[in-house]
Design a protein around this nucleic acid. Structure first.
Lengths: 259, 259
DNA sequence: GAGTGGTCTAGACCACCAC
DNA sequence: TGGTGGTCTAGACCACTCC
């Protein structure tokens, strides 16, 4: 049983904010643990002696802050947080590839979570304008499109879509769902495109509709987007990877010289 | 006059989502330009023939997406967006410092906005735990704390707090509000700490209360946080800078070797 | 069927803003 | 003073989940 306290009708702060504060404090103090069920709206209405819309407005605040998620017909729950993944800028180092692991799987060992990849889809098509620009292709040029979703401990944490110029992928496992040991980058190197440099563009924003469902996050959780271009030793862009990550699940680390 | 259309009472999508969609489309198509006033709640109630709470729920959606801001007693407005700043990983290159400009001012020229810095505060104190760890200081060790706020075209885009071990700042302009030509990093190099490497940790999250007011953003806009550590040529950390940026105003770019 | 959250109605009073 | 958004009430019906 949690301590819900009371609200002060004469306070400057409106009742819905007071109710939101009480619940927020219970959550951050972990008196309500991640995954725990909050009292039902009906209970809160009864406890505080307010209208249901007032209780719902309080819960709306907490949803907006990403602290709770509601499930129709079941209840409102404290949002369970996925483990934090720390991505260092050497995560694509060749030494990881040579061990036969793709970056995501290699990292899971050291951090200690169970990695999964699902929704793998491979197709041929044309690249979005921005991607074509980065790949220095004509708009509409054919690329291999590889999309997939990454999960940590069963919870989605990232979606990724790779675009590879069709000529670089032709006849390789890049055109198949399973790219084999070392992943996509290992296959590109076998095809003669030794990787030299990566360039990443990082932004953050609120998720749009289908991202919310794919990443199983509510509207109160931002996403980090990383648009990565891989260049070979001749400076030719050989792949662009567009990733959308659940922001609270990631810390990106980059080292660079002061020059 | 904008075209508000009508809603379909028999659709699967609830009326509030249909209303939100119409307004959202008008905004993204720029039929409602940034800064423009939306029709009042009363007008929308009249136009769509729904209850006021239904209109408010539609507007709540748009607020959550950061598309509009409401101003009590004035109306609801399309959020005007600050210009996008693209931060490349060479933005602290020595060549910029040697021209006598700090990074923020140097960049404004090329991108074409008016930069301002305000709320500059300098104090002595102890570093937060994480900062002390990065600076390899004992918890509670004395540092110089420099905080400031950056604005582009008069709109806040970033707050920054720098922590410099007291011994490195002693007797330099680092202890004064105006650090002089080339900024903080130029002073550190003059003091014998030639900069060699930067390391940045990037995350994104929703803003907390005082960040919302300092950056003048509503609850629907995420922030990017960058925690940067500067190392000198001997590998000694000489500064940690904790920045909070309005996410939609930034693209961070990093280049790194595939190794 | 009982309990839950999702949506909606038709009012009300208040605080803030511009004129 | 009139128009605006902010908050609240006391209901209603629906869709979903679980038993």
């Amino acid at each position: 049983m949690v301590e819900l306290g009371t609200i002060d009708r004469h306070s400057d702060r409106p009742p819905y904010q007071q109710i939101a504060s009480v619940l927020r404090d219970l959550i951050v103090a972990e008196k309500l643990e991640p995954g725990a069920k909050l009292p039902s709206e009906a209970r809160l209405v009864e406890h505080y002696g307010v209208a249901r819309m007032t209780v719902r407005q309080a819960l709306q605040e907490l949803r907006g802050e990403g602290l709770v998620v509601s499930e129709h017909g079941r209840g409102v729950f404290v949002r369970p947080m996925p483990p934090v993944r720390r991505l260092a800028s050497d995560r694509f180092a060749r030494k990881h590839r040579s061990e036969g692991k793709a970056a995501f799987l290699a990292e899971a060992d050291s951090v200690g979570y169970t990695p999964t990849v699902d929704r793998i889809e491979v197709s041929h098509g044309s690249a979005p304008d921005r991607v074509a620009e980065l790949l220095r292709l004509d708009v509409g040029a054919e690329v291999v499109i590889r999309s997939r979703r990454y999960l940590a401990n069963g919870r989605p944490v990232e979606t990724a879509v790779s675009y590879i110029p069709a000529e670089f992928a032709a006849g390789t496992k890049i055109e198949q769902p399973d790219t084999g040991p070392g992943g996509l980058y290992a296959r590109l190197e076998e095809a003669g495109h030794t990787l030299d440099t990566f360039s990443e563009e990082v932004t953050a924003r609120m998720p749009v509709g289908d991202e919310r469902s794919a990443l199983e996050i509510g509207p109160g959780i931002p996403v980090l987007t990383v648009l990565r271009t891989a260049y070979d030793t001749e400076g030719v862009p050989v792949e662009v990877c567009d990733t959308v990550k659940v922001a609270p699940a990631y810390v990106l680390q980059y080292d660079f010289p002061a020059r």
